[in-house]
Every structure is written in C-alpha cells, then in structure tokens.
Simulated scan of single mutants.
Amino acid sequence: MLQLDFTPEAYLFDMNGTMIDDMGFHLIAWANVLNNELHANLTDEQVKQQMYGKNEELLARVFGEDHFTQAQADAIAMDKERAYQAAYKPHLQLISGLGPVLAEAQRKGIKMAIGTAAIPFNIDFVLDNLQLREYFPVIVSANDVKQSKPHPEVFLKCAELLGVAPAKCIVFEDAPKGVEAALNAGMKAVAITTLHEAHEFAQYPNILAFVKDYHDPAIRELLER
C-alpha cells in the first residue's frame, strides 16, 4: 500500500535509467573516456558514483574545476555521447510497461514532464526514435537549469511550467541524487532500480516504492489514485 495522502496531478520523469534502461551503456562510455582517454584510473564503481548532474560537472568532480576549458569539456562530452548512442541505439526501447503507463496517465489527464540532466542531443535521440513527444509538453534539460540535481531546480521548473504545485507531483527517478532532488523539491518519488539498488536510497524518506519496471503493482496502485 502506497503511503500517499493526495491525488497526483503530475508525473515528472528523469530520462536515462528511468524511462530507458541505458545507464550501463553510459557507464561503459564514461569509463572508456575517463580511463582510456583521460587516464583517470577509476574503477567502474567510482565512475558509477560520479554519474549525475551535467557532463561538465562530472569532469570537474573527477579532474578539478579548472582542468578543462569549457570548449574542451564540451568536446569530451560530445565524444562520449556519440559513443553511447552508437552502442545503445540497437537496444533503445522503453523500460517494460512504461508505454501503457504513459498512455493511461495521458488519458486520465495527469500532466507529464521530463526533468533530466541530459543534453538536448540525447533527449532528441530518445524522444524522436521512440516517438514520445506527444506525452511531454514540458522538457527541462541540462541546458535549462543553473543548478543540477540534487538541487531541486529541474523538478521545480517542471512543476511551474506544468502549472502544478510541487506537492502534487510524483517524480520517477533511478538515481539517489535524483531522489534527493525530488525530496528537496517537496515531492514524493518512485525509485526505478535499474542501476542503483534499494539500499543506496536508504537516507531518503520521500520514496513511495522501489520498482524494477512499470509492471510493478505499485505503479498500478499509483495510477488508480
């Protein structure tokens, strides 16, 4: 039974790892760039822990704030994204059960937005190949915010643009920092355990449920609210 005392008016989705199960491909692409090209000598687990926020912020966390110019960071990030897209495209699909959930939420009048640290290059890759734009009148990308998750700006901006109070929004997230952003925005969250396990979210009291995919009974219960 979900501990929810309101009727949700909006669903806010992170994208990578939440709508599509692609974080393993991002991990491989980042590990290759960081270790083989930039010689950071990180373990896969260390790379995984850095995979949040904007690409330039990840590079700054690993190498220091002034190690790369903005132009260099942008070029590194685009090389990584091209490698990720080339590897993932044959596998590109929604996480199981999400398609019907989006259709039913739309039918019920639940507003939907995407709030992601992805750049438009990757957002277009997903939305256009999977023909999802009809569901998302609001998309807030890395380019649209000054402060990345766990700061709540991305989700608060989604709520504002949808015209829904933050407390009436449900966030779908796969990353602990994303769930923290939802908490900081005053929003409940559903955690999708594609890359991170439930114990990695232990400090967050705003999680309604942990699900592997959108066939989980908790999702059905949420839609019936």
Rank of each mutant, 00 (worst) to 15 (best):
N143S: 13
E56T: 13
Y135W: 10
F125Y: 03
L156R: 08
A31D: 06
E173A: 09
R82H: 13
L161P: 06
L58T: 08
V179Y: 02
K177Y: 07
D174Y: 08
I76R: 07
L59Y: 04
F63P: 00
S148W: 04
R82Q: 14
A182R: 12
A117P: 12
D21R: 06
E9H: 13
I123R: 01
L132V: 02
K80Y: 05
G178W: 00
N206A: 06
R61V: 11
M187D: 02
F172I: 11
L208E: 08
F25C: 15
A198S: 14
Y52G: 15
E104W: 09
I119Q: 13
E57S: 15
C158K: 15
V179F: 03
A83G: 10
G163V: 00
M19W: 06
A60E: 12
G163I: 08
I76K: 09
L38Q: 08
M1I: 10
Q70V: 09
R225P: 09
F6D: 14
H91T: 15
L162G: 13
I207C: 12
P176Y: 04
K212S: 09
L183C: 01
E134N: 11
G115N: 04
N206Y: 03
E45I: 02
S141D: 06
T194Y: 01
L161K: 14
Q3K: 15
T194S: 15
I119T: 14
D22I: 01
A181K: 00
A218R: 01
M19K: 08
C158W: 06
P166N: 07
V33L: 13
V62T: 05
Y84N: 05
K157I: 06
R82E: 13
R82T: 11
V101R: 12
Q49I: 03
M1K: 12
T116P: 03
V154I: 09
L58G: 05
E200V: 07
C169P: 00
K54S: 13
E200M: 10
P8V: 10
V126D: 03
A118W: 07
C158S: 09
A31R: 05
M78A: 13
V145P: 13
V47F: 02
H151F: 12
L161I: 04
V179M: 05
A218N: 09
N184R: 11
A113W: 00
L12Q: 07
V126P: 04
A198K: 14
M1Y: 04
A189P: 15
R61H: 05
A29R: 11
Y11L: 14
L34N: 12
V62Q: 10
G24R: 09
L38S: 03
D22W: 07
I207K: 15
D22G: 12
D174W: 02
A60L: 04
K146M: 14
Q106L: 10
L58H: 10
M112F: 05
A175S: 15
L38T: 03
K212T: 07
F125G: 07
S148H: 01
K188E: 08
D66T: 07
P100L: 01
T193V: 10
K168T: 12
A83C: 08
F155K: 04
L34I: 06
R107G: 01
E221I: 04
N16L: 00
P120I: 03
V138M: 13
P166I: 00
Y135F: 13
I219H: 10
Q49R: 15
W30G: 07
D213V: 05
E160F: 08
T194H: 04
M23D: 02
